[in-house]
């Protein structure tokens, strides 16, 4: 029994290390539903919205074709552009500077193997969207990359590039919720009926 406990601890440490760099939350049953609850669903979405509109998420979901930078979400210097595939143009491709991992140090390029914006034909704009607009957009497979609700939850909860937002490197503010808390709110939003907030919600 003692031996088993020790092994478990090791496994936990092992998985914790993996989680801290990759997924954070273990896979959960993303198809779970709860009784419909428009108030609870909207409330959960507002929490989700705050995360999505934080600099760490919004900077790569800009309204234009220029990514944003910094906690103040200024236009990316160097006239960087989205490009057709979302990974930049010509000699200014994302991965020319952004490595597979954050480059250490203040103001150094953050990194991830998938670093980039959504592609030009699926721009997934966050910047400037009201909560209602963003909720409807996220739920619309024509605008969300063809994702089902389950895939949407999986993306938010497990995608490695999304997960970068919680390991953004030196000097960058974290989103307002932890990733597990964020994932929980996404699940709650959808499980409670995936309601979009009213037009006047902020």
């Amino acid at each position: 029994m003692k031996k088993l406990a020790a092994i478990t601890v090791i496994l936990l440490i092992g998985s914790a290390i993996i989680l801290s760099f990759k997924t954070e939350t273990a896979k959960v049953n993303t198809t779970a539903t709860l009784p419909k609850d428009s108030v609870g669903s909207v409330k959960a979405f507002i929490s989700v919205y705050k995360v999505l509109m934080s600099a760490r998420c919004m900077n790569c979901h800009p309204s234009g074709d220029v990514p944003l930078q910094g906690d103040d979400s200024h236009l990316h210097t160097m006239n960087v552009k989205r490009g057709a595939d979302g990974h930049g143009m010509y000699s200014v491709r994302c991965s020319n500077c952004h490595q597979a991992e954050n480059t250490r140090g203040l103001h150094m390029p953050p990194g991830n193997p998938k670093w980039g914006l959504p592609p030009a034909n699926m721009r997934m704009v966050f910047q400037g969207r009201t909560p209602r607009e963003l909720a409807l957009q996220l739920l619309d497979p024509k605008q969300n990359g063809g994702r089902t609700k389950a895939q949407l939850i999986d993306h938010m909860a497990n995608d490695a590039l999304v997960g970068w937002a919680w390991h953004p490197g030196d000097g960058r503010t974290l989103p307002p919720l932890t990733r597990p808390a964020f994932a929980a709110q996404v699940r709650a939003w959808i499980a409670k009926g995936a309601y979009a907030p009213g037009a006047d919600a902020k």
């Binding site: 006239n79 010509y90 200014v92």
Partner: peptide, 10 residues
């Protein structure tokens, strides 16, 4: 415009 897009990193 293409030149602006390609060369503004230098």
């Amino acid at each position: 415009q293409d030149i602006d897009d390609a060369m503004s990193g230098n």
